[in-house]
Amino acid sequence: MTDILFYHLERRPLEAVLPALLEKSLERSWRCVVECGSAERRDALDAHLWTYSEASFLPHGTDAQPQPERQPVLIATSDANPNGATVRFLVDGVALPDPAPYERLVYLFDGRDDEQVAAARERWKEAKALGAALTYWQQDENGRWVRKA
């Protein structure tokens, strides 16, 4: 059964949180896809992941580049899975895909954005209706993740 994790971003933005989550996934030998709501967001995340840390290298590419199937982390604008990812990160309020091909779906949303919070609530209801194993994570005052549900 696919685990569906909801990450409620309150203290740190997506750009600060996503690299660490991707690094942890790669440490577990999981291939990942990050589904974005627009090409502009995809391109911004792509640029950010090349420069977020001088001490780290996060191998990745986008679905606009050749050979997306070779990327351990693929940043995409569709629900396709050309790199055979086992973990799918969902940002910008995108719809939940069929969970069957994945070990994990990770839904990240900005708690300071009312539209994203409303979309997350809808996605939670959809995931619950699927009978999926759901967890809800929220940042504490130190920016650490605390399981709330």
Rank of each mutant, 00 (worst) to 15 (best):
D43Q: 10
A44H: 05
G84V: 01
A20I: 02
A76Y: 02
V73S: 15
D79W: 08
H48P: 07
P101G: 05
W124L: 08
D114R: 12
P99I: 02
G61W: 07
C36G: 06
Y102I: 15
T135C: 01
G131I: 08
W50N: 13
K128E: 15
S78Y: 02
A76D: 08
G93M: 09
G61M: 14
R121Q: 14
V87P: 08
R88D: 04
E35F: 01
P97L: 13
C32S: 15
E40Q: 12
A39L: 05
A64V: 05
E141Y: 00
Y7L: 07
T135M: 00
P68C: 06
V87D: 09
A47S: 11
I4Q: 00
C36R: 05
A127E: 03
V146Q: 15
V87I: 15
K125Q: 14
L49T: 09
R121S: 10
S78N: 06
D98T: 04
E115Y: 03
S25M: 07
E15K: 08
I75E: 03
D43G: 04
Y107H: 11
K24I: 03
G84F: 04
P68Y: 00
D46F: 12
D113R: 06
P72W: 04
Q67E: 12
H8V: 00
R144G: 12
P66V: 11
P72A: 09
L134P: 10
R121M: 12
Y136N: 10
A100T: 13
P101F: 06
P68R: 02
L90M: 11
L90S: 11
Y7M: 07
L18P: 11
L108Y: 05
R28M: 06
K128I: 08
Q71E: 14
V17R: 09
M1Y: 03
